[in-house]
């Protein structure tokens, strides 16, 4: 093939133009559709994030089935506590209205660890107007119970003063009569 003095340059330029055009078309085809509606991002990503499944579903859906706990919980001092914090997220328990798993119920030493996350006075920075705290095991000694006692042997976990108030009431009635 006979080549003129600039045929290689022409071919290079042609090649670069084809490369650029193909690249541009490829870019237009593969760019996501909703890109740039609000800004330099895919606008659909907002709705996708909004549609993410909720795993925690507040206390409301728990109460209709767990009526006994519900009764205690809503009248007790722990009424602001989330069921799901101690027991785990609703999504691990009920899916599409059907029970799919058991949520754990803390027992024994676990209860003590759980209660002291909030109520341990040894951790300073727990203001009295926010939370009532105790020092262990001094609290057990004060109340004249065994040091092996777990918290829930005196305090009902869902309504901490429930038994204590009842006991006090019973005692005062006795005293009066």
């Amino acid at each position: 093939m006979k080549s003129s003095y600039n045929s290689h340059v022409k071919r290079i330029i042609l090649g670069l133009v084809i490369f650029a055009v193909v690249g541009f078309i490829g870019k237009e085809i593969s760019s996501p559709k909703s890109f740039g509606v609000y800004g330099h991002y895919r606008a659909d990503a907002i709705q996708e994030e909004a549609d993410r499944d909720m795993r925690h579903k507040t206390n409301t859906p728990c109460l209709p089935c767990h009526t006994h706990e519900a009764g205690l919980h809503k009248n007790g001092l722990h009424k602001t506590i989330s069921c799901e914090f101690c027991h785990g997220p609703m999504a691990d328990h009920i899916t599409s209205g059907i029970k799919t798993g058991e949520l754990p119920v803390k027992k024994g030493e676990e209860i003590r660890v759980l209660c002291l996350r909030c109520h341990n006075r040894a951790i300073h920075a727990r203001p009295g107007d926010v939370i009532k705290t105790v020092v262990m095991p001094d609290h057990l000694r004060d109340k004249k119970v065994k040091e092996t006692h777990t918290c829930n042997q005196c305090h009902h976990v869902h309504a901490p003063y429930n038994y204590i108030d009842q006991a006090k009431q019973a005692l005062s009635i006795k005293e009066a009569s």
Binding site: H56, P89, R117, A125, V130
Partner: peptide, 16 residues
Amino acid sequence: TRCIGCGSCCVADKRE
């Protein structure tokens, strides 16, 4: 002034 460092928020966040 109100945070008691119980870590409930961290636990819930990790689970969510």
